[in-house]
Amino acid sequence: MSVNGRPIELVLDARKLLVDVLREDLGLTGTHIGCEQGSCGACTVLVDGRPVRSCIMLGVQAEGCDVTTVEGITPEDGLNPMQQAFKDHHGLQCGFCTPGFLTTLAGVTPDAYPDEESVRELLSGNLCRCTGYEGILDAVLAAWGRDR
C-alpha cells in the first residue's frame, strides 16, 4: 500500500486493525482510536480518497490501497485551508476527534453538501464531545466559502 504518498511494505498479522498499523507500525499517531466499532469517527482516514473508519478495517484489507492520514493532508509549512479554518473558528478544543473530521472533509466534495442541514448530516459521522459542533460547522462553511 502507499501511505501519505509513500510506498509501504509490511508483513502484518491478519487481525491487525488498519488504525493500529498506522499508529504502531508507521508511527502515524495523528489517527486516533475512540470506539473501535466504527461509530465515533476519530480514526477516519482516506482509503483511495474516500473517508473510512480505520478501526473497523483490517490492515490487510488496505493492501494495494492509497491511505492518507491527517499527517498526509497537512502541508509541510503550516496548515491547509480547512485546518486553518478550524483554528480561526475554534473548531476544536481537546483536538482528539479533530483529525477524523479533517480527513472526512478532505474526502468529500463541497457541492454534495449544499446547505447547512446536509453539512450537519455529513458531520454526524464524527463525534465531538467538546465543541458542540458550532465551531466545526463555522469552520467548514467558511472554508467552503459560504455564509453562516
Binding site: G38, G41, T44, V47, R50, P51, V52, R53, M57, T104, V108, E121, L122, S124, G125
Partner: peptide, 12 residues
C-alpha cells in the same frame, strides 16, 4: 441508503 450508518460506513 442515506439512512444506513454514516458516510464513512457506506464507503466500505
Amino acid at each position: 441508503l442515506p439512512f444506513v450508518g454514516h458516510l464513512q460506513n457506506r464507503m466500505r
